[in-house]
Design a binder for these strands. Structure first.
Lengths: 187, 187, 187, 187
DNA sequence: TATGAATGAGTTTTCATTCAT
DNA sequence: CATGAATGAAAACTCATTCAT
């Protein structure tokens, strides 16, 4: 008996997000995914019950990823300023280094049938724990996690999304954004 | 004759965004649009060369809309605080009152084949002209339009998108966000 | 070892007819049979060369069954009347007690690719031997086995098939049928 | 605008039953039907919502047919004997002349998902009205329509189904059957 | 023997688009 | 202009069967 191949499932998932980056969620068919992954279309149904199920599972998994990445960008001993910069730059780097995952998650979040499956808030907690600490110590302005996500991450998402239009000025805008956010959150 | 035609085209566009809100961009076919609009599929091709062209034209048109709406929310005589509140609340209101357009634009922005067609920045200028004025007069922190969009609009977009998860606390979060943005941008 | 295997083959055959009762011959796939039998699809090919071969073998075997059952319903010392009643009631009981086999055989008999494999006449002889005896003795009307099958068994098959539509009146119709057949065949 | 083509739908239905006669209900796919009918597979979905719906509609329609045919075989002025012979011979002729419809209806009646859609009894009334008349006048044995169907039609169905095995003796068996049924029903 | 993975060829069905009126 | 019919191409998915263990 052939054993279920973890690598193969991984190949399928990677093909999926690569394609969705290139062709969008509505331009991505099961056969294209199969071709991209180098397997038969039927094989995909060994690993997933349906295209919808595959998207949901991948979405659930990948929605987490930027937060895991971000956790590696921040250190407990960072100053409040550094912490904010690390989060902003980290998230922006992620959007570049993992453009495919980033675009995949962005598209899925907007898709009515998928959006329900994952709630962004759930993932963010650990990333903000450093900020919570400073907030408790009165070194940072207190606010809810919703608001933290909204003001720290959404603007970066916006910049990442419009990266191509910003061309060379990207770094400048990022720096400006970081300054403004630092002033906003620090006492 | 002229009026009737434009009404029909309007019906088609409205059917399009209604469907995309309900079923997502990848669940929306020409026949479904036709059925929803009460016309024949062939009729759609009287007004548009292709599905892609229809999406692009609708996207181009509707991407503008929130900015037109916002312009009606702000008055030249508003104080800086009021201005920020008006923009934030106005954009949020728009996302509720025109949920379909909002979702349509969000989805199109993330779709690789459509995103290129419209650049968000182009639209934003007039909305920010009040802010520009205050910035020139030194009453508001200076920053680029990119950054203004990023910090003023993206967070609202985030809240709008997660509206259902926030339930009753929506208004609280909105108020917190407004306060934080006012502090951030006002001297 | 030998026993275990036969049990497994038996489980497969039972799964086959159970499924065909529920889903019809065209809704029954090898994988479904395997799932229902609790074995792997590949295992089925240990016992049968192909799906077609499996159906044929099962058909051949199960087509016999009602006749074996009927033989247990009749006794050599039965009166002509009792004999007819026993055959009719026995066949009807069989269609209820072994609904799955009954439906399976009915479906296979109508399926062009399978019908050729089994000829109903071959099976019937022993059931009718009691009748033959009475015919020889001049107590029953003489006629061919074809005709016996046609008039004694087909009507029961019809009633069995429409059992659900007859609801409570089933027993009445059966009794009427028995009376009519007795009058018809007895001198 | 092209008009819906009655002939085309007819061609599809005829292709359907021709194929089901040749290949059985489980060997008949939409693409095969389309090829046989000389249309595109997609065209079939202009006329029917699904394969299942097509089968149901065809079944509903064709289940009637033998009864319409039979009505043309019987005349009000027939003697009781002639009436029975006409029904038996008529039904048998139908099974030969319209082998495809006959086989189609037989297969559908046994298919669990289709059998529910049509109840055989509903169709039979007019065919038996001549018999009812003789029954009322005391010239024929009284019995329910269920029983009439069971004893008059089922045996013929059995003979028709086994026609190939009976070879040359078909006519003999038929004649024997008719005699026996006449004796059974006539006083 | 027994198996779950794997698949080419098929399934049913939908698609965006064009045709004929 | 407007349309329902028509369709080639492709969608999602299933099939009977074989492979590798």
């Amino acid at each position: 008996m052939r054993l279920k191949d973890e690598q193969k499932q991984q190949r399928i998932k990677e093909a999926l997000i690569r394609l969705i980056l290139r062709e969008g969620i509505d331009g991505t068919s099961v056969s294209k995914i199969a071709r991209e992954a180098g397997v038969s279309p039927a094989t995909i149904y060994v690993y997933y019950d349906s295209k919808e199920a595959m998207l949901q599972e991948a979405f659930r998994e990948y929605a987490h990823q930027p937060y895991l990445y971000l956790e590696n960008c921040i250190r407990p001993d960072m100053s409040p300023e550094a912490l904010i910069e690390a989060i902003v730059r980290g998230y922006y780097s992620y959007s570049i280094e993992h453009e495919d995952i980033f675009s995949f998650v962005e598209q899925c979040s907007r898709c009515p049938s998928l959006a329900a499956a994952v709630c962004e808030k759930d993932c963010s907690c650990d990333v903000f724990s450093g900020i919570h600490e400073y907030q408790r110590r009165g070194k940072m302005r207190g606010c809810s996690d919703w608001t933290l996500s909204a003001v720290l991450l959404s603007p970066v998402r916006f910049m990442a999304m419009n990266r191509s239009s910003m061309a060379e000025e990207g770094e400048l805008h990022l720096r400006e954004l970081i300054r403004i956010l630092q002033d906003m959150l620090l006492y």
